[in-house]
Design a protein around this nucleic acid. Sequence first.
DNA 1: CGGCATCCCTGGGGATACTG
DNA 2: CAGTATCCCCAGGGATGCCG
Lengths: 116, 116
Amino acid sequence: MHVSDVLARVGGKWSILVIGTLGQGPLRFSELKRAVQGVSQRMLTLTLRGLERDGLIARTVTPSIPPRVDYALTDLGRSLLEPVAALGQWAIVHRAAVERARRLFDAQVPGAVQTP
Amino acid sequence: MHVSDVLARVGGKWSILVIGTLGQGPLRFSELKRAVQGVSQRMLTLTLRGLERDGLIARTVTPSIPPRVDYALTDLGRSLLEPVAALGQWAIVHRAAVERARRLFDAQVPGAVQTP
DNA sequence: CGGCATCCCTGGGGATACTG
DNA sequence: CAGTATCCCCAGGGATGCCG
């Protein structure tokens, strides 16, 4: 397991958002799907499986009718929440700087195509 | 610019490794290619362009023969180094726990195929 | 409600060859 | 040395439909 492997898991478009969302408390599948806006059912399932496999979240099934499945961060998952939140903070703080740099770069390098 | 956009940039398989490597000082292209072991010339170029565009690294060309191009973190890039390093630390500290969880999960869920 | 399964398509990314 | 250009493959991920 290398740094890049962590990012392979975390880098998946949705993992961070799921972890961040669960950081505020356990949720069931449908709630999670609503909270993590834009995620497809398929990707949410796959993301949850991956995170569960890595021990970052716990899946609790209540065999009622209708069935109920809750997802919550494990201790391991909560520990990841910290550095992830730091990265999120960075994004918020520096978003303007990045956007400025991007516009500048795009203006100077006419050949660069970004949003065709 | 959202958190997921930062991770889109950072999430690229190589960005983190490049930033981490440049954290120890400026390097030229070929040195970087050797340091970031496993990266193809193409992906290194693309990664560097992306990071440069976002103002995270600076590209300095010395028009000599043979040409020389140095890459270094900008202040913005260095600021990103912190949360990234935190994530790297997390990976190092918890790699064993993740691997254990993964083996356990794989043992309990025989149907799961991970490394065919 | 909470999922697998399936189809399909985009683009991330490797290998290779050529240029200034 | 430091790229750009091309070809090509396959995993990531969306849409849809079926099941316990």
